[in-house]
């Protein structure tokens, strides 16, 4: 969520375009995954999810896809609001 807010902030200020903001998000995903995989304490909890029958790679895929979709919807709504504000 924080990353979404940062991306939207730079987007609304006109410092990055939509494609650029998605590139920023993909880079942040890389950082998150890298931290989780290589941080000794973070990846200890993977055992809980594996014991529950979840595949960690698939969990990441679902979570990040949902995040990217949510970001797209949020972005579209903000653009729409910005457009309405400029009209009225």
């Amino acid at each position: 969520m924080t990353i979404n807010m940062v991306c939207i902030y730079f987007l609304l200020r006109g410092e990055v375009n939509v494609v650029g903001s998605y590139v920023l998000k993909i880079m942040s995903y890389g950082l998150i995954i890298g931290f989780q995989y290589y941080n000794y304490n973070a990846n200890k909890t993977f055992f809980y999810f594996r014991n529950a029958g979840y595949n960690i790679d698939r969990l990441y895929l679902y979570a990040l896809t949902c995040d990217a979709l949510a970001y797209g919807i949020l972005l579209s709504l903000l653009k729409l609001v910005k457009y309405w504000v400029s009209i009225f």
Binding site: K44, F47, Y48, R50, N51
Partner: peptide, 18 residues
């Protein structure tokens, strides 16, 4: 082994999300 939840493993370290 863990694929499909067929095998569970108790590691020597703590593993529950805090």
């Amino acid at each position: 082994g863990y694929d499909g939840g067929r095998v569970a493993y108790l590691p020597q370290h703590n593993y529950l999300p805090q």
